[in-house]
Deep mutational scan, measured.
Amino acid sequence: TTYYDVLGVKPNATQEELKKAYRKLALKYHPDKNPNEGEKFKQISQAYEVLSDAKKRELYDKGGE
C-alpha cells in the first residue's frame, strides 16, 4: 500500500487534493470518533506528512521514505 493509496489519491494529485483527502479521512478515522481506528489514523497522518512536503514527496516518489 502506498501513501497515495492510504489517502485515496492519484500520484499526480495536487497539494489541494491531498489536503482535502487528508481532512476527510482524518475526520472519519479520528480516535475521538473512531477509537478502534487509531492505527489507521496514524497511517493517514504519516502519509499526509510525507506527501504534503515537496522535498519528502519527491524523495518518496523516487523510492525512498
Rank of each mutant, 00 (worst) to 15 (best):
E17N: 04
Q43H: 08
D53L: 02
G38H: 15
E39Y: 06
G38D: 08
A13F: 06
N36Q: 13
A54W: 08
T1C: 14
A13L: 02
L18T: 01
D61K: 01
A26D: 02
L7C: 01
Y29C: 04
T1P: 13
G38W: 14
S52A: 08
G8W: 03
A54Y: 10
E49A: 13
E37F: 12
E17M: 09
I44E: 00
A21P: 00
P11M: 08
G63L: 15
L51G: 00
K19R: 12
Y3P: 03
G64K: 12
P35F: 08
G8I: 02
V50C: 08
V9C: 09
T14W: 01
K19D: 15
E49K: 12
V6H: 06
E37D: 14
N36R: 09
E39T: 07
V6A: 08
Y60T: 02
G64T: 13
A47I: 06
D53A: 02
L27F: 11
E37T: 12
N36K: 10
V50L: 05
K10V: 06
K28W: 08
G8P: 00
R23V: 14
K40P: 04
A54D: 09
R23H: 13
Q15I: 10
E49C: 12
K19M: 14
K19S: 11
K42Q: 13
Y4M: 01
K33H: 14
P31K: 06
H30E: 09
A26R: 09
V50A: 05
G63Q: 14
Q46P: 00
E39F: 08
E37S: 15
Q15A: 13
K42G: 09
D32V: 09
L59D: 14
F41S: 02
V9G: 00
Y29W: 06
D53H: 03
Y3F: 11
T1L: 14
L25T: 01
P35A: 15
D5G: 06
K24E: 15
D53S: 05
V6G: 01
K62V: 07
T1E: 13
K42P: 03
E37M: 13
D32F: 12
Q43C: 10
T1N: 11
D61P: 02
Y22Q: 03
K28V: 10
K40C: 09
R57M: 03
A47P: 00
E39I: 09
A26H: 08
Y29T: 04
K40M: 11
E58T: 05
Y3N: 02
T2E: 06
Y22M: 05
G8Q: 07
T2A: 07
N12F: 07
A26M: 15
Y48W: 12
E58M: 07
Y3A: 04
K28P: 02
K19H: 13
G64Y: 15
K56N: 05
T14Y: 02
N34H: 13
P35K: 13
Y22I: 02
R57I: 03
K24D: 13
K42T: 07
I44L: 10
I44P: 00
V9W: 00
L18C: 04
D32I: 11
D61G: 03
A13N: 01
H30R: 09
K28F: 10
L51N: 00
A13V: 10
K55V: 15
E17L: 05
Q15G: 10
G64F: 15
A26K: 11
L7E: 00
N12G: 07
K28R: 11
K10R: 11
L51A: 01
K55L: 13
G63R: 11
S52Q: 08
L18G: 01
G64Q: 15
G63V: 10
Y48L: 03
D5M: 08
E58A: 09
S45D: 05
P11E: 07
K56Y: 07
A21H: 04
L27K: 13
Y29L: 05
P11Q: 09
E65H: 14
Q15V: 15
T14M: 03
K10T: 12
Y3L: 13
Y60A: 02
G8M: 06
Y22H: 03
K55F: 11
L51W: 00
K20Y: 12
P31L: 06
K56I: 05
D5N: 07
Y48H: 02
G64D: 10
N36F: 10
L25I: 04
F41L: 06
T2F: 08
G38V: 14
L51T: 01
K10G: 10
T14N: 07
A47V: 04
E37H: 11
K20L: 14
T2P: 04
S45F: 12
K20Q: 14
Q15M: 15
R23E: 15
K42F: 08
Y3S: 02
A47G: 01
K33W: 09
Q43P: 04
Y22C: 03
H30P: 05
K62C: 09
A54T: 13
N36L: 12
N36S: 11
K24F: 12
L25M: 09
P11G: 05
K42C: 10
E39M: 08
Q43Y: 09
K20F: 11
E65I: 15
K56V: 05
Y48M: 05
K56L: 15
T14G: 06
R23N: 15
Q43E: 13
D61Q: 03
K33D: 07
K19W: 10
K24Q: 14
Y48E: 00
K55I: 15
G38I: 13
Y48Q: 00
K33G: 08
T2R: 06
Y60L: 03
D5W: 05
A26T: 13
K40E: 06
R23C: 14
D5F: 05
E17S: 05
Y48D: 00
Y60F: 03
A21Y: 02
Q15R: 08
T2W: 08
K62H: 09
P11A: 09
G64S: 11
T2G: 06
E16P: 06
Y60Q: 02
Y60W: 02
N12W: 15
G63F: 15
K42S: 08
L25E: 04
D5E: 09
Y4E: 01
S45R: 14
S52C: 07
L59F: 08
L27G: 09
S45G: 06
K62P: 03
R57Y: 03
D53E: 04
P31W: 05
Y22K: 01
A13Y: 02
K33T: 13
K24M: 13
Q43M: 08
T1I: 12
D32Y: 08
K56P: 02
E65C: 14
G8K: 06
R57H: 04
L59R: 06
K62W: 07
R57S: 03
G38S: 15
E58P: 04
T1D: 09
G63I: 11
K19P: 00
A13S: 05
G38A: 15
Y3D: 01
G64R: 12
P11N: 09
A21T: 04
N34C: 08
A47Q: 00
Y4H: 02
Q43S: 07
L27H: 14
Y22W: 08
P11L: 06
E37G: 12
Y3Q: 02
Y4F: 03
G38C: 12
T1R: 14
A54S: 09
Y22R: 01
S52T: 06
L18R: 00
